[in-house]
């Protein structure tokens, strides 16, 4: 069991994650979007979304520091164990709670605002379950290590060495097996999240537009530079009032109105309605 979870699953996860991202990037540029629902509702989004996103950014930084930097290094710089934990837990708790509250607001909004709920796919729902589970499990590890019984071995002696050992292809299964159940649960859910990541809307994180800071404002592009309509096209336009929009009502079927129309470049005429539920 340990071998499966801590020795094999991580590599499966990496393979699916990286392979999936590459596949999606090559074949589903059109589906690669945030699918923002701000048009439907923006009052709750204005609070929830920044709370969640900034929270999770801090959490990511925390993970990187906690997992990558060995205990000896911080000790060498003069950061004592207690100071490190105070910082990590303080910052981690604040960021974790912000993330949880943020995602809570977003899920509440998604459930209660009619149009937003209608625009929510099965894919989204699955993703939310895994995401929230990962956040809760993660926050639980933090809370337990603050208020729970004091343990001699912390994650810096168990999870982190295991994590670093993965990169040299010699997984330290023993170290991870000694971690507490909360950490193990969080790790497994986290891996699950990364497994489904490439196939959900979460992919937008990988096209975070940092290059915006450096590009010129006005962009010229030649028509010949890139045949506008011959790029890989996956999704189709759907006609107004199609079945998935009028889910539980009488549906006259796509009918003659469902003729795909031409869209903007790169999304030219589609022969077939190809919109599946969420990502494909």
């Amino acid at each position: 069991m340990s071998v499966l979870l801590w020795g094999i699953l991580p590599y499966v996860m990496v393979a699916v994650f990286v392979g999936g991202l590459i596949w999606r990037y090559r074949y589903d540029q059109f589906g690669w979007t945030t699918r923002s629902s701000q048009l439907y509702e923006s009052r709750l989004l204005r609070i929830g979304s920044p709370l969640f996103h900034f929270g999770i950014l801090v959490v990511v930084i925390g993970h990187v520091v906690g997992l990558f930097i060995p205990q000896e290094w911080t000790a060498a710089v003069g950061v004592t164990e207690d100071l490190y934990h105070l910082l990590a837990l303080g910052l981690g708790t604040v960021a974790g709670i912000a993330t949880l509250v943020g995602v809570g607001i977003l899920v509440y909004r998604r459930r209660t605002t009619g149009p937003v709920f209608m625009a929510t796919t099965k894919n989204d729902k699955t993703m939310y379950v895994v995401l929230v589970a990962a956040i809760i499990a993660g926050l639980a590890t933090t809370v337990i290590s603050v208020f729970g019984p004091h343990e001699e071995v912390t994650y810096r002696d168990t999870v982190s060495p295991w994590f670093r050992s993965l990169f040299i292809l010699q997984p330290d299964i023993q170290a991870m097996s000694e971690a507490s159940f909360a950490f193990q649960l969080h790790t497994v859910v986290g891996m699950l999240l990364f497994l489904i990541w490439p196939f959900t809307r979460l992919v937008h994180a990988f096209t975070a537009p940092v290059h915006y800071l450096f590009r010129p404002y006005i962009i010229y592009r030649s028509r010949d530079g890139r045949p506008s309509a011959s790029r890989g096209i996956r999704r189709g336009w759907t006609a107004v009032g199609t079945p998935d929009r009028t889910s539980d009502r009488r549906v006259p079927g796509p009918g003659p109105n469902a003729v795909p129309g031409p869209g903007n470049p790169g999304a030219g005429a589609r022969r077939k309605d190809r919109t599946g539920g969420g990502t494909r």
Binding site: Q29, F30, W32, T33, T34, R35, S36, H204, T207, P209, R231, G263, N264, P265, G266, A267
Partner: peptide, 8 residues
């Protein structure tokens, strides 16, 4: 460009 737009 519909392929590059990420819906920001």
């Amino acid at each position: 460009d519909q392929d590059r737009c990420r819906g920001w």
